[in-house]
Nucleic acid binder design. Structure first.
Lengths: 121, 121, 121, 121
DNA sequence: GTGGTCTAGACCACA
DNA sequence: GTGGTCTAGACCACA
């Protein structure tokens, strides 16, 4: 995994875990890699993993059992889709807010989206 | 003006200037407020204004004429719309990148946008 | 039994044993459940039960007879009440210390107690 | 300041700040000592202070202004008393919960409080 | 000067 | 083995 140097690594690790949940690679009840293992895998200091896991816990996405590890929270099947829904909606809202701030109206937003998607391909 | 504490103030000031251009309050050739005036108006450290103006200059949106002040660049009429176009597109691209990262496909993106706009109202 | 994740499980198990003594379910001379049985009953790692029993022994609440098991100490009748008295007083003292630390005087403490009891109902 | 080795230092630092607010030594709007200054004063690693300040911010007791420092939040006069009220009530509730868990009834609680206060003197 | 992040690594309680 | 806390110290963005 490569890190974007403009974003704190612990945030990028949180995102990575979320992506794994959305992709279905991690389900509710699953054990997340141990701090040391993930630190080695990502070539990152264990403290940074600890930080990421603590923030995930604060977001109630994971649960830590003392001496046993960190686990994905929530009900088995729903977790991935619910998370995708939540993230998608909150990212979309922040985006719309930014566009409004720039003086761009709702119908123009859709045009920008289409153009941006076009240019990606 | 209130600042979002999660975003550097100098960025928010740059945005403020851009908004004024898009809104037509500042046009190409206009003189931007002096560092001292704007600092007082926004109740902000003058260094922060200096930083914002330097970044605007780096983006080639303004130009500084020695001893005369800082001015909006470009041709009179087009500046506002061109800026809106540029900002809209770059914000939209960043948004789409984030959605893809979260495992959301292009057609789902449109749905999220609609839902987000709905919930705003 | 559900565990509060902010308190070590072995402490919560010690408390559970104490509660059983206070409630009269365990009396002086009674044999405490075997490590294996209690581990199964509470769905907990047997090591954790061992730890809890060791601490209870250190507090001189239980005693282990080689090859026979672990037993509640003391004279038959008094044990429950004495324990309740001890726990009540030590918990109360710790509480008062905390309140003093927060700058709350003795007469205010009583008011807080009354309010807290009221709000519980 | 001496630290109780059973409680994380960052928690004890948070408590210290709260005490200063309750005592009126820190009021809303006041600047809290800088990370480095307090680290030196308390002979503690700066990271530990950072941690304490971040948690205080999460509790919405303080507010951080980038590059300027950390400040006590809230309205000027009320802060100290409100905080005292909040802490007092939450500590009292936790205490009553613990007493109930130990099989001690409300009217007995008051007796324990009195006895504990007596023995303190 | 101010707080934020990160590394390297120690020591600890807990299960 | 597992996560939690802490030190010592570097480097950074921001005001």
């Amino acid at each position: 995994m490569e890190f974007d140097k403009n974003v704190p690594i612990y945030i990028q690790i949180m995102d990575e875990i979320k992506h794994r949940i959305i992709a279905g690679a991690l389900k509710a009840g699953d054990k997340v890699p141990s701090v040391r293992d993930l630190a080695e895998e990502l070539k990152v200091n264990p403290n940074t993993i600890v930080r990421a896991y603590q923030e995930l816990e604060r977001e109630r996405l994971t649960e830590t059992k003392r001496g046993m590890g960190t686990f994905i929270r929530g009900e088995k099947e729903l977790q991935g889709d619910k998370l995708k829904e939540e993230i998608g909606l909150s990212v979309a809202k922040a985006f719309i807010q930014k566009m409004h701030d720039a003086g761009i109206k709702d119908d123009e937003i859709v045009l920008f989206i289409k153009k941006a998607i076009d240019e990606e391909n």
